[in-house]
Nucleic acid binder design. Structure first.
Lengths: 229, 229
DNA sequence: CTTCAACGTTGATATAAATCAACGGTCTTA
DNA sequence: TAAGACCGTTGATTTATATCAACGTTGAAG
């Protein structure tokens, strides 16, 4: 078990939103904080369950997805250190509206939602950062809505590859711990379709695939494919 | 041209979020306010354009949709009086991320985003209401994401009918000014598919359709169809 | 009044993508 | 070591849905 920072004030894995807080405020956060460790595949919180805490990811990788009927999932995003997961139910019905699962060994701090809400009330800068965070999530969901409903398979897979490389892993040959099913859940399709699309891209020399390492050889081409759908 | 209230303090069409403001704050909003009138089909703001104002709908009906390539749209929601339209770009890139169009004769007040942001900073209650509003939008987008990607046509159309009746028009036989294409844009399908689905529902005695008036005869059945996809 | 464009509807056809099935590989677990 | 489960991959088949085409209606514009 990794040792996480003993106090928020000195924590180096602190999410940006806490930067504007003074020591008194940080102490309040620290008192409410619960450090947790999750192994690969473990559920951090589940859609529909009561929402008591915001989750700040201090190491590892977390995937968030909405669940429909019949075990179908749509991955709405990944959260890396040092970021926190905004739970939109905190202000509405105190329920989680998506599920969060650790993709690899992951440590997080849970902070009670009412501590967050108190900070939103008392610290304007914090409130602004908080709203900016939610806004980004909204913008992202809008983008996903068009991507998943208006593009066909090659476009969606291209988009997903670019996302993984540029936003999630921020590397070009990137090594992912995601299964084909995970990628399918990002694209809203079956894993077989993902495999076929990857194979096509590989045959066309646009990417190379070596196990879990994917190298995007022709990014402009992928961007074009993603754009024209 | 209808006369809108002359001052926010005495306005009867004020969105709920302004309820917690004192007269000084309301005056500030009033000074920044621009009343506008739009006819059926007119664009209030367009995706990608600079975002300077929040739009408060005082009469009529507004549809909001994200635009993809190739003229395809997904309607993400309708805004009725007395509600305002949250533009997520206001806190991020000062751009609109969806388009808003008047569905019928519509009056709105435009309020500069920085006035909103100032209120968020100075009034905690306002900030809370504001965040709750965005949270609801996020929850709704999550729901749409699963609906549009995981259900097939009958399920999506049933869902749309229930939405129109229960949330948008709040009536059971309801008369809608929406075209079949609009309904298709709500469901992420073609207008032909909508027509066929409505015909099937009609033949099965689940609904009646008379021009733009739709009567949901068997709501539980529609809910089942919506659920099982 | 006429013309044209957009809408609603229906049927026939094409096609994208899911499903089904099979197999080898890897990892876990008994 | 062996058994079972899951993953990745590929091919064959089915199916849901889009596309294409045609036509009557309505409403707006010239």
């Amino acid at each position: 078990m990794k040792v996480i920072s003993t106090h928020c004030i000195s924590c180096k894995n602190r999410a940006d939103i806490f930067s504007g807080l003074n020591d008194t405020e940080l102490s309040k956060v620290n008192d409410a904080r619960v450090g947790m460790h999750y192994s690969h595949g473990e559920i951090i919180f589940k859609q529909g369950s009561p929402c008591h805490d915001f989750v700040c990811v201090t190491s590892g990788l977390v995937k968030c997805f909405v669940e429909g009927e019949d075990d179908k999932k749509i991955i709405i995003g990944f959260v890396r250190p040092v970021e926190y997961i905004f739970a939109p139910g905190a202000y509405i019905d105190k329920r989680h509206h998506f599920t969060a699962i650790a993709c690899e060994e992951t440590t997080v701090c849970l902070v009670a939602t009412d501590v967050f809400q108190e900070l939103v009330r008392s610290n304007h800068e914090f409130a602004n950062e908080f709203i900016a965070k939610i806004s980004n999530q909204t913008i992202d969901l809008c983008r996903q809505l068009t991507n998943l409903t208006q593009k066909q398979i090659p476009g969606r897979v291209a988009e997903t590859l670019l996302r993984l490389s540029q936003i999630v892993y921020k590397k070009n040959p990137f090594t992912s711990c995601l299964s084909r099913q995970d990628m399918a859940d990002m694209c809203g399709m079956t894993k077989e379709s993902v495999v076929r699309a990857l194979k096509t891209f590989k045959d066309e020399g646009i990417i190379t695939v070596d196990g879990n390492q994917i190298h995007l050889l022709n990014v402009p081409m992928l961007e074009t494919i993603s754009k024209i759908g």
